[in-house]
């Protein structure tokens, strides 16, 4: 079964700005890979539980205790744009 991907929609969902040529190229590559991957679809897996975790463990909690925070300078100094101790981004809505 050939795979048909709306690659532009996928790229938008993934927030990656690609040119039409790039979209075309990635689209074809993905279709090839997914055709290969389609073999897994043929496997009979009815009644099989999916595995999300390799180890059969649960919870992994920590206690409600307060620990040390980072010095804001240690990460704000790494940010592309900051103002008044905050991260700054361009306007959120378009014109």
């Amino acid at each position: 079964m050939p795979v048909d991907i709306d690659i532009a929609k996928v790229a938008k969902l993934a927030r990656i700005a690609l040119t039409d040529d790039e979209l075309d190229q990635y689209g074809h590559q993905l279709e090839d890979i997914l055709e290969h991957a389609e073999r897994v679809q043929a496997l009979p897996t009815e009644g099989i539980e999916p595995t999300s975790h390799p180890m059969p463990m649960v919870n992994g909690f920590r206690r409600d205790e307060v620990g040390e925070c980072l010095d804001p300078d240690s990460f704000l100094s790494q940010a592309p744009d900051t103002r008044d101790g905050q991260f700054r981004v361009p306007r959120i809505l378009g014109e």
Partner: peptide
């Protein structure tokens, strides 16, 4: 379901 879900089940089969 067709891709990720099925892959997780194959993972169970491998285990």
């Amino acid at each position: 379901d067709a891709f990720y879900g099925q892959a997780q089940k194959v993972r169970t089969l491998v285990r």
